[in-house]
Each structure stands twice: as structure tokens, then as C-alpha cells.
Design a protein around this nucleic acid. Sequence first.
RNA 1: GAGGGUGUAGCUCAGUUGGCAGAGCACUUGCUUGACAUGCAAGGGGUCGUUGGUUCAAGUCCAAUCAUCCUCACCA
Length: 874
Amino acid sequence: MKKELSKQYSPAEIEDRLYAEWESKGYFKPSDDKEKQTYTIVIPPPNITGQLHMGHALDNTLQDILIRYKRMKGFSTLWVPGTDHASIATEAKIVEAMRKEGLTKDDVGREGFLQRAWDWNDKFGGRIVSQLKKMGSSCDWSRKRFTLDEGCSEAVKEVFIRLYEKGLIYRGKRIVNWCPKCLTTISDAEVEYEEQAGSFWHLRYPFADGSGYIELATTRPETLLGDTAVAVNPHDDRYKAVIGKKLILPLVGREIPVIADEYVESDFGTGAVKITPAHDPNDFEVGARHNLEIINVFTDDAKIVDDYPKYAGMDRFEARKTIVKDLEEKGFLVGIENYSHNVGTCYRCSTTIEPRVSMQWFVKMEDLAKPAIKAVKDGDIRFVPERFEKNYFHWMENIRDWCISRQLWWGHRIPAFYCDECNEITVTKEESCVCPKCGKEMRRDPDTLDTWFSSALWPFSTLGWPHDTDDLRRFYPTNTLVTGYDIITFWVSRMIFSGLEYTGKAPFDTVLIHGLVRDAQGRKMSKSLGNGIDPLEIIDKYGADALRFALATGNSPGNDMRFSDEKIENARNFTNKIWNAARFVLMNLDIENIELPENHKLALEDKWILSLYNTLVKDVTANIESFELGVALGKLYDFIWDIFCDWYIELLKPRFAAKGTESNLVAQNVIAYVLCGTLKLLHPFMPFITEEIWQSLPHEGDSIMVSDYPEYNLSLSFSDDERKMDMLISAIKAIRNRRAEMNVPPSKKAALYIVTNHTDVFSDATAVFFEKLASASHVVVCENYSGDDAVQIITDSAAVYIPLAEMVDFEKELERLNKEKENVLKEISRIEGKLSNEGFVSKAPAAVVDGERAKLSKYRDTLTGIEAAIEKIK
RNA sequence: GAGGGUGUAGCUCAGUUGGCAGAGCACUUGCUUGACAUGCAAGGGGUCGUUGGUUCAAGUCCAAUCAUCCUCACCA
């Protein structure tokens, strides 16, 4: 049972071994007992393109804390793992890899391309899984899923068909965001706007009848080729007369009308706007209202189309220069103004988005959004912290239809078929079909679905939906969703409306939001900056527990955090501290079983540590229940380091030296009991080290991870003894303090005379503490001290005299005492002021008032002591 | 344009329901004290951004203001 432990903790030796044991024993799977209450988390599936980064490390640490806690609390827990095919990101990587081989998508064809994509998944999908295992994540790997596996694909088809039949999915010619590099549409949510310095070109368009010009301004002169009108505000007096007149489009020569539309703001620019329905979302709407022609001027990759021979094949930015030059030469350019404006870019490749009119599939959002808003308003789902509900509402209340078709191959192919003969559309789960009207073989839509369409179904598709499986009945709805604030709109909101629409239930009850992990300077970690930190390197160097500690401690929900060397070193030091505390305990342990502390004749310090431990159990439990994981971990840190190590272990050393005594036996039982319980409290946060130590201690059961979580126990609450121990501790600290002030080395032992009313506390039994911890040669508790030439240390419960007269400068000592007296008097008058305030005494809770009274009496005792000391010196 | 976050020790950040301001790192001093120098002990260092308000009591609640960061929308 007992092992020799090395002086320094070496995580590398134990982590992989323990993880393999846990997994092989099936601890990650839910309990077989189907009556047990369940607790379920689905993992935010990492993309198969990447490897684990610090964001994942944080996200999964938090999930593992929750799932391990609930497992120990007796829930049947399930953490469903999996990966996301990440259509656009993966496809871009494969295209890039092929480019290096000199190949294009068309060269290898759809089948060939998909083969490459699956190969990619085999190669990289598994890597992220092994990285999650390194973190200690207790996922049920037997239930691992992939957004593109058979089951998820079936769920996607089912949803598509249901929505189509309900009229909530439609196909339409709309203006969409087109990425000319990725060669696909992207949704509104996937567009990132960035401020760019640009120009405002003032142009003039001549009237067809030769009666002068109308002046307008544009940031995109190259789209002039597709202009089909110029719009003004109907109430703009400057232009009322010209509404309906024709203009000649410069360079092109086409006749276009002047139209009136409320969209135009009279006081912006010249009050006249060129309208290009094919290449601007607002213009598209104006065009629709006025029945304007839609003239597309760009190819897929944003080059000018062949219809304009002079510019054909030019890139849009090159065309801009040429067109501006031509306009200038022909006298249509009035001037150029510097102008900074927001430009939409692709969230994957940062290429400037080209709005483009095309036939796409959309999800009609209005009806889906309403119940999703209600579920959060009603509290069926809550966000932690709550403030993110506002973001959610804002997004949901202003939602526009969701463009779901993507011109990509890697993804769920849209289950729609078209008849080239009679234009019939059929939506079906089948892989091919013939036209129900004319019997001709139908052509399948070549496009795939937005990758978020499948991740929106993740909480239930992973459990077997649309089939009514055991897992779905047992584990759905899930409980907590843990994710970063950056994907609330992309993912969380879509899971909520999807869950409500297809299963009739909110997919989870709580959304725990965390922030970003930034570098030590507070910068976002990114590839381009090269400031990313690899969690696996950290694990190799410091261990997974240290990494988990560094990520979980001092972090509060929804807030960004910095990751730094100091933080991880502190975490590593903490693991080492725990290791050595355990090592000390084991060195002094010869009991085979830990007996409950109630059965023993407990010493003061035993009751004190048990009482503090008991409070810790209550606090940590409450903090975890309310998702204050950082606070809970902070309390564990303080208890282990400051209370357990720095005090209790030190207090016990004399008893451990006295082998074979009853007191020694009691000490063994109490310290083992407290250590064991504390390890359990810490286990969800730091699973490896706690398991390794727990296995070395006397224990029942096979693993700490399936042991019972400690419960608050009223019979371990000893408030009197806490107070008594505090008297001793503050006396010891005061003595140390004085000795340090006087530069007395610890090796210089001195006699202590303690004058006190609390002879039950300052007694023969506790004298040894002063010898061990306050450098006392011997301790005398007496009614009063009559010897002269002593250093006097006054606490609220005792006056301590150290005959060290030769080391003390009396004048300095008097000065110090007077200063201390002044401080105490200040405190006394502060509290007296408070207590003489009628409002405070009558309105504040009795406990607070009593607390103040007790403090006052302590300070008065201290004052008496100080005054006596001053008297003595004089 | 709309919404939100943050502002606490030199630095990075906690601070749960309002009840005497905390940690880590850094700094000063002293310690090879029988688990740990990845350690022990003692210490210095804060008008809790600013101004008002509510309250017996405000870092905490309210209002305003300054600084800073973010999200959403977007006017050509």
C-alpha cells in the first residue's frame, strides 16, 4: 500500500498511467444504474483542422471539473466528446495542400476531393482526441461522435426536410456575402468588419438630355459598371425636379433613371446615391422596390466579367484604379476625399467580401427565434454570467434569415434534387431520385450546408436523435454547456432554437461562458503573432494538473485571462507542495484504516483543523454549485497551503515524534482524514496528483474519481476550538513578529512567561507549540509576571514576557508601545462610534453588532495590557 | 449608431448576500527549523478611476463622468 515518494513531484511518470487505468476501468462512462439522476455535458467539438490550443485547454478543464464533481456527487454523468468537420476551414486547408502539389479541386473531382478530406480526418481527427486525454478529460470515448458521421448526417437531413416541409427553409435569389478566395457564400455572422482607410470618389453623371450633371460620391467606383439607377430622397428639394429623368452612365453609356427612395439620406454626401443592385445589400433592396435590373459585373473570383471588354479579367481593385483614371480623363471625376469606412471581410481568410446576388438556401429565422428568446427570458436556460443574455437577446431579436448553402464539397450535401426538364424540386433523404412529375433522373444540388447547421444539432444528434434512443431519453436535455463568448451567436443561439424546434426541449439548462486565454502581455494568441502557447508543451514541462490549476484559478466566468510563466510556475509549486505534504503524512502513518475522527479523543488543534476543513467542504461545494470555480479553487489553495501545511503539519510534529502514544494515533487519523477529504475536494480540479496520493493513503474503493464527495458534517463543527486556536496562533505570530523586529535569530531560544485569563488555552498541552513555533526554551503560564527587563508582547488574549532585556532598547520599546497604543485607541474609538450610533445598533443584524462588541472588548483588553507594559518600563 | 465589459498593491488579477481591503509574482529582512529553497518566517506597499446618491454601513447597490477594451449594426 505504502510507496516511497520522491522529493519532487513528477507528473510525467503518473499521468498517462492513471488515465489509462481510469479509462480501462470504465469510469468515464455513465453509471449502469438507470435510476440515478443524470448530469450531461456535450463537448464543443473541436475542428479537425487544428490541434489543441489554450482556449480548448480552458474550455475542457472547466467541463472536466464539473463532470468529475457531479460524478463524485453521485450523478450518472456523461460527457460526450467529438469533433467538427469544419467545412470551410478544412476545405481551405486541403485546397492549400493540393495547391502545393499543383492540383486544384477540379483536377481531382468531387469524389477524389472527398477522399482526401476523409484521409485528413483520419490523420488529424484523432490527434485532438489524444490531446484531450492528456488534459485528463473524463469523456466517454465510447460515445465519441463526428459532425459528419452517419448519425449526425441523418439528423441533418431530417432537419432539412422537416424545415423545408414546414416552409422554414427556402431557396431564393438573394444578395449574399461571397468570399472570392474561398469561393463560397458565408453567413452574416461570418463576416468580420474592419475599419479601413479608403477614398470617397465624387463623380458626376450627365443627364441624357444634356441638361447638366448630377453629382454623387462612392467608395466603390468599379461597381459603376453595374449601376442601374441613381437614387435621391423623395423629399429632397434639390432633386425633386429631376426624379424620373434619365442619366447616361459614364464609361458604359447605358441610360439609367433617377429614382426616389427613402433609403437615401439627404444630408449625407451630395444626397444622391448610385444604385448597384448586384453588388450592395442596400442597393439590392432599393432595386427590388423599384424593379431595377440586376447587372452582375464580377466573376466568382471578383474579376470583371467579359461584358466589359476594356476591363474584362481585371481584379476588382485593379479595375478600380483603371476606372477612376478613365473617369478622370473623361471629366467625370469631380474630386477625391479621404474616407475611412468599415469593410466586410471573410472570417476565415480575411479577404474583402463581395456582396453578390445568387440562388441560395435560407432558414427563415423569425418563427424559430421567438421560442428561443422566450426560453432564456423564462429562465429555462440561463447564462453564467448573466450579462451575456443581453448579447443573446440582441442577436436573436434582430436576426435575419440564415444563408445555409455553401459552395463547398466538404460537408453535408444539400438533400435537394432538381429536374432540368420541368424545374421540379424534391427534397429527400435518398441519394438519388427521379422527377415525380416527368420521371426524369434529377440532378442533386452540388452545394453543402454551413458547418454550423450540423453543430446546431450537436446536443441531441450525438445522443441518437432523430431516433428515440435510450441515450436520448436518459441524457437529453443536457445540463451545462461550457463555451467561450466568441461563439454564442454562431453556435449557442443556434443550438437553442434547434433544440426547441426539433425536440421541443431546451438542449441544456445552463450556459457557462468563459473568456479568452491571452498571452502574458494581454494579446490574443494567434498564429500570425506567433505568441500561441502549446498546452502539450506546458503539460510536458509542468504536468496537466498544473496547467489545469493555472487556467482555473483566479479566473471568473466570462472574463479573459492572461497566461504567464509566473502563473504556471506558481501552479507547479502548488502541485509540489501538495506532494510534499502528502509525503510528510505518509512518512508518519502506520495505520491501516482511517477511523472517523468522532471516535477519538481530539486535541484542540485536531478540532480546529476538522472545523476549518468542514467549513471548506461547505464553501467549496457551494462555490462549485454556483459555477464559481475559481473561487472554490482559491479556497482549496489557501486551506492546503496556509492552514494544513503551514500550521497543522507544524503543530503535529511533536505528536508524530512521540511514536506509540494515543495522541500520535489520533493525530494520524485526523491528518489522514483531513488530507483524504481535501484531496477529494481537489480532485475535480487536479485529478492526477490527487488520485496518486489517495492511492497511497489508506482508502476504501478503487479510485478517488469514483469515491464519494465530502459532505458538510455538523458534528465536525467546533467554533469554540477555532477561537481558542486563533488565540494561540495570534500569540505565536506576535512573538515571531517581535523577535523579527528585534533581529533575534530563530536559533536563539528564550523563556516565555504568559500571563492570561485563558488558562484552558495556554496550558501545558499547548506550551509545546511555543517551543516549536515561537523559539521558546520553556514556557511558564502565570498569573502575573514580576521579573524585570522583559520584552512584552500583548495580544487580545494574553501578555507574553520574554526576559531578553539586554537585547532591547527601552526607549525604542516605549516608542513602539505608544504607537501600538495609539493604533488600538483609534480602533476602539472607531468601534465605539459605530456602537453608539443608534442606527447601527438597531438596524444592523445582531450577529454583526455582537461581533463589533466582541472586537471592542478584545481591543480594550489589549489596551489594558499595553498600558500595563508602558507602566512597567517607566 | 446601439449594447456590454473593465478600471482594486509596482505587475497580473480575486473579492460570493453591502459588515475592519486579499492572492500570486516582484521587493526588503532573517532562516540549510527533520515534507517541500518549487521551501519557512517577518515586513513594506492601496483615497478600491473621479464626483454625487441610497444606507447605520459601499470596492460591492444607483446616477453621472473620465479612461480603456469588446460585441453588434452600418450611410453610398
